[in-house]
Write a protein that binds this DNA or RNA. Structure first.
Lengths: 336, 336
DNA sequence: ATGAAAGCGCTAACAT
DNA sequence: ATGTTAGCGCTTTCAT
């Protein structure tokens, strides 16, 4: 059996309380130097590892925070998770995720809410918007678990870190239009079309008296992007540019364009959004909007940590800018 | 405060034991139907959620298993994690990962071993080999935590699921050679060159009296692959094919080849290994070896679960075949 | 500086 | 079918 504080107490002839104090690393207890050393030696020799469950029970805290997302298998999520976990780790916390496939998707909410393990964490970072966002937040609030939101849209009912992709989206569209790409098709789902990205698209296109055509997709993934490009080209012929809701869709688009026998950027331009690493590693690197992953996660953790530590002020919101990265996939077609 | 069984006991006038039994979902207790309903109603009305810490403490189990990897931010890992989490979830367990950036890399072992939270899980799935594999296994064994290994190389000291990429690697190399690609450069690190993939390469090349040239890289990532392709082409001119240690490296290679102004597959062929989804979504889809993610994870969990449940027999090992996927990136250059 | 004991929330063995 | 109680491993009062 795994050694416990009682075992060490028995071996050393000390009490469990002393063992606990001797093993404490925060230095908040006064303890005899020799006693401490003796306890630590014994602990080491018996391979003692604290049982975090016991500790969590008395502390009323698991030191776990959950990263909840609709799409936990994407590179976007991975990049976010790695950064977030890094900040979280500095304060002795760690991150758990909703990795099981069943929990994904719009319909995933009831399943997600039924996950008891998810609700034994000390806090939530909730990524990307979705229909069930508000309901999830409400559940967390009911259970007194702090939540912080992270994404392109604003959040009510919780602290949030907003990423401004609207401004760089406008810059991007203005740029490509000035270089002659005017027949632009946005590849998106209804939801995102209604939000920031779609708004930028409608605004710029209308300012230039251009048609704001969209090609609708169901999911923000590569397969959808590929199919969208193929369908669009088959039905209407190639546009001058695909403005994609995210990088995964854009990467799929690039694939569909190649299958249709066309070239990027000569025949069709592409732009994505998010700035995942994969966007740089394409034969034709992708123009995209790079999100400030590290800063966003740092801020999100700062918010969450303060709530976990008891801060009870009004909801806070910070907006971080995203950076337009112009790459080859939108290289100029023809000067105006 | 969050409601507990005691609260429900007080409200209903029943004892905590009865509450616990009424809330049990496994149906192993005989309990009055009306009582059960009443308890559940009250539980619902007060927003009761079981405290998993309390449960874990008495059960001596967290119902958490850890997925430990050297490279937890890769798509390979993500695909594995999603499948594994799915099987694990069916038995009421869930998966935690070593997400923090600091814990990654060869040097990460001491840090990893110092993670108390990691060692409070019920079991480990340890992916991809590394120098610290054996030491990690030993620690787990010392703490009586079951471990299962998953990867291309064999494991001693633990149950393991082996993925045979040797056979399809040979098929792949024979195929491309028969279609005229003979100047093949393997892009790999020392470790993998010494193992299965490298062995297949040396075997086939030597059987055809061809030089088994390698271009060494440090990491199995896209950036390394890109640089390797650029360096190789700059120093020796383009080979007829790059045989890459994994898909990420191959994707980077494709990128480097494009930067050098060459075309895939006309000028240079590329093959990867792993069969991550990204390999299909390239303008020129990548020839690769698709690993049986689902079967591997199912088997790994079967092994791990049995150990968690107390099975104490000798170590088991199963080998699963991987599938060669011939795609455009190795389309024929010239018939022999 | 150390010991004794309570208690975190829950389950299960033992009573009734 | 339900009540009572011990105890999982740990931290933290409260004594000494």
């Amino acid at each position: 059996m795994r050694a416990t504080v009682s075992d060490i107490a028995r071996i050393t002839g000390l009490s469990v309380g002393t063992i606990s104090r001797a093993l404490d690393t925060t230095g908040r207890y006064r303890i005899n130097k020799e006693t401490r050393q003796r306890v630590r030696d014994v602990a080491k020799s018996v391979g003692y590892r604290p049982n975090l469950i016991g500790r969590a029970l008395v502390a009323g805290s698991t030191k776990q925070v959950a990263l909840v997302s609709r799409a936990p298998f994407t590179e976007y999520y991975t990049q976010l998770a790695s950064r977030f976990a890094t900040y979280v780790a500095r304060d002795g916390y760690h991150v758990v995720s909703n990795l099981a496939e069943q929990l994904v998707g719009q319909e995933g909410l009831p399943d997600l809410l039924a996950q008891d393990w998810l609700f034994s964490v000390d806090g939530f970072l909730l990524c990307d918007p979705s229909r069930w966002r508000d309901e999830f937040i409400q559940h967390a609030i009911d259970l007194q678990i702090p939540v912080v939101g992270l994404g392109a849209v604003g959040w009510s009912g919780a602290d949030s870190v907003r990423l401004d992709i609207h401004t760089p989206s406008i810059d991007l569209l203005e740029h490509v239009i000035s270089y002659g790409r005017k027949a632009i098709v946005m590849v998106t789902d209804e939801g995102s079309y209604a939000e920031s990205r779609g708004d930028a698209f409608r605004t710029v296109m209308s300012a230039h008296n251009l048609e704001a055509r969209i090609r609708k997709i169901e999911h923000h993934d590569r397969a959808s992007g590929r199919q969208a490009a193929l369908d669009e080209i088959a039905e209407f012929g190639p546009p001058e540019m695909f403005f994609c809701v995210n990088d995964a869709v854009a990467i799929g688009c690039a694939c569909g364009i190649a299958e249709a026998g066309l070239r990027v950027p000569e025949d069709v331009g592409i732009a994505g959004c998010d700035g995942i690493e994969a966007s740089e590693f394409l034969p034709c690197p992708l123009t995209t909007i790079v999100q400030p992953y590290s800063e966003a996660c740092a801020k999100a953790w700062e918010f969450l940590k303060s709530r976990i530590d008891g801060y009870d002020g009004p909801h806070r919101e910070v907006t971080l800018g995203a950076r337009l990265a112009l790459r080859k996939s939108t290289a100029f077609q023809r000067a105006v």
